[in-house]
Design a protein around this nucleic acid. Structure first.
Lengths: 224, 224
DNA sequence: CTTTTCATATATGTATACAAAAAACACAGA
DNA sequence: TCTGTGTTTTTTGTATACATATATGAAAAG
């Protein structure tokens, strides 16, 4: 019930937030390429709004680091260097391990069940070519672990770090050779959390991210 | 020289950035209290600018979580719950340890020297009542460790987490009884990094943050 | 043919205008 | 006194206007 009320209340979204999400998606998906200029009037016409919401959205993208401002020239899409990616993944590795270990202590039976189900879902998708659904199942799997860790700040930081790599995620999931390994890792992570075995979870999560890191870096090399 | 050129080039700051920094400081120092409304016209008059730069500054504060938006009502200063603080400190603990361990591997002789000097500076200030300088020295000490870790993303996240607690920092530094212990901990952290002893650095850094956590939580209890 | 200079166009930075929603208030009625 | 309702005020959300800085391009000078 209160959910419904909430839904009704949320049906209003300021234009600036619509624009923010739109531009954000476009950047993370690579539709707006690094170095590309974000010209306010152009975007305003394109999205059918005035410059004001565009500018306010850009301010948020600026703080998030997705665009960089050049004084009196406007915003350009930030380019990610290999160093940037390594830095992001290094921090993410640490925090994913942290989340996994905390989940060992704090996970509820409810969430544990969801984790198992999502793991199975991922397994089912692994041999299909529905990469989008596969990616979504992967996101859900990790989301459940974050939720189990029960630290809101950790969740937002991890989500942000993960999103930094959306542009590459689909790329590396297309490497179907790695799916078997991914399924295996998910299974081990689930088992570890179920047993409350921090050591095991920490180790598997570490290699999970390391593998991802290598795959992404390799994918980048190819495209450049 | 190039510093001068840079200074000249940076002499231009958009009003929105001036406003952003001003409001940010005011919130972090507690001059704007949690729950307080940020009314655009009022702020605009107060700072002598139009609503536009105010609004753009608020968008950044919004993304940073320092203010929360209420639809069609505007922005209010975000209030920090005890849970929020615990969450922040929990993540910060992990990342401070990460930074310390990375510093063990990557620190340069140059930075190691700076770390030693800043530690001594802190020691010198410990018995004075110049809490502001003491806090600054503490910030510098940790900044050097972050820099030594050599991960830009880690630096920005840690800075952000640290700033979340600026409102309380001065409070707990006024507890002069803890100064001796702080000096001791800094000394041990420095020694650990010098020796490249990750275990030691990790342990001391952990208790360093834990102590800070307890002090801050205690300070909050008192004020409420 | 290259370079410099000046005029023009374009885009940003800031201010203001306007519409609409929410809050505050006053007042009538029970 | 409390409640409900209509009105006014305030404030936000969005659009537009204006000034200025930068880029663009053509014409003049070398």
């Amino acid at each position: 019930m209160s959910q419904d009320i909430n839904a009704v209340m949320n049906e209003y979204l300021p234009l600036r937030d619509v624009v923010f999400q739109t531009l954000r998606q476009a950047i993370l998906r690579g539709e707006l390429e690094p170095g590309e200029r974000l010209m306010e009037i152009h975007l305003a016409n394109r999205l059918g709004v005035s410059r004001t919401p565009i500018r306010e959205a850009i301010r948020k993208l600026e703080l998030e680091g997705l665009v960089v401002m050049i004084p009196r020239r406007g915003a350009i899409v930030a380019s990610i260097t290999e160093k940037d990616l390594k830095d992001v993944l290094e921090v993410r590795r640490t925090l994913e391990i942290m989340a996994g270990e905390m989940a060992c202590e704090r996970i509820t039976p409810e969430l544990l069940k969801q984790l198992e189900e999502t793991g199975l879902e991922f397994t089912k998708l692994k041999d299909t070519d529905d990469f989008t659904s596969l990616a979504e199942a992967d996101v859900r799997f990790h989301d459940i672990i974050y939720a189990a860790a029960g630290n809101q700040r950790l969740i937002s930081i991890l989500n942000n770090l993960r999103e930094q790599m959306y542009r590459y995620r689909l790329e590396y999931l297309k490497d179907t050779g790695s799916h078997e390994r991914l399924v295996q890792e998910h299974q081990e992570i689930y088992e570890g959390i179920r047993r409350g075995d921090k050591e095991a979870v920490s180790a598997v999560t570490g290699t999970h991210i390391d593998n991802q890191r290598d795959a992404i870096l390799e994918a980048i090399m190819k495209t450049e």
